[in-house]
């Protein structure tokens, strides 16, 4: 009884060892990536949700109309839209303030935006020394 069990246990241990050795000898199973050495070749899926960015076209214009839908959609109060008046006294975007320190990357502001003025960027290395270093103004100039 004991002998057969000893034999059986040894056999199953050896079978387990076989799996380990197979993993060792199968290079296709190696999935480890050398970060940060591979930073240049890192690929992100299109829908990757990183820090919110505001795309600007080649003339430096954005499409934000300061409708504040994203501000209302945000669950954390991460976005603040400060408006101003342009030369024709029309209400336009002054500053799009985005506080990354409170952002949960939930994608609700992007879904709320009717003009595709903001999107999720691919930035993820966000280390900072102070919390207010993570407050960004996303627009480069005032709206028109």
């Amino acid at each position: 009884m004991t002998l057969s069990r000893l034999f059986h246990d040894t056999l199953s241990m050896l079978k387990g060892m076989k799996v380990t050795i197979l993993y060792l000898t199968r290079p296709s199973r190696v999935v480890t990536q050398q970060y940060p050495e591979n930073r240049e070749t890192l690929k992100f899926p299109e829908r990757f949700r990183g820090q919110v960015v505001m795309p600007h076209d080649e003339k430096g214009e954005h499409t934000c109309t300061a409708c504040t839908l994203c501000e209302k959609a945000c669950p954390n109060g991460t976005i603040s839209i400060l408006t101003t008046k342009n030369i024709a006294s029309k209400r336009v975007l002054g500053e799009f303030i985005y506080r990354f320190s409170t952002c949960t990357l939930c994608n609700l502001c992007i879904e709320a935006c009717p003009f595709d003025a903001i999107r999720m960027g691919h930035g993820f290395e966000m280390a900072a020394y102070k919390r207010d270093e993570l407050d960004y103004v996303l627009n480069k100039k005032e709206g028109r």
């Binding site: 899926p45 299109e46 829908r47 990757f48 949700r49 949960t104 939930c106 879904e111 999720m120």
Partner: peptide, 20 residues
């Protein structure tokens, strides 16, 4: 990550389906 852009905190389903 390809489906919804997140690896842990998905926030993908919406009432009536999903967001994409």
């Amino acid at each position: 990550e390809e489906l919804c852009g997140a690896r842990l905190t998905m926030n993908y389903f919406r009432p009536g389906g999903s967001n994409a």
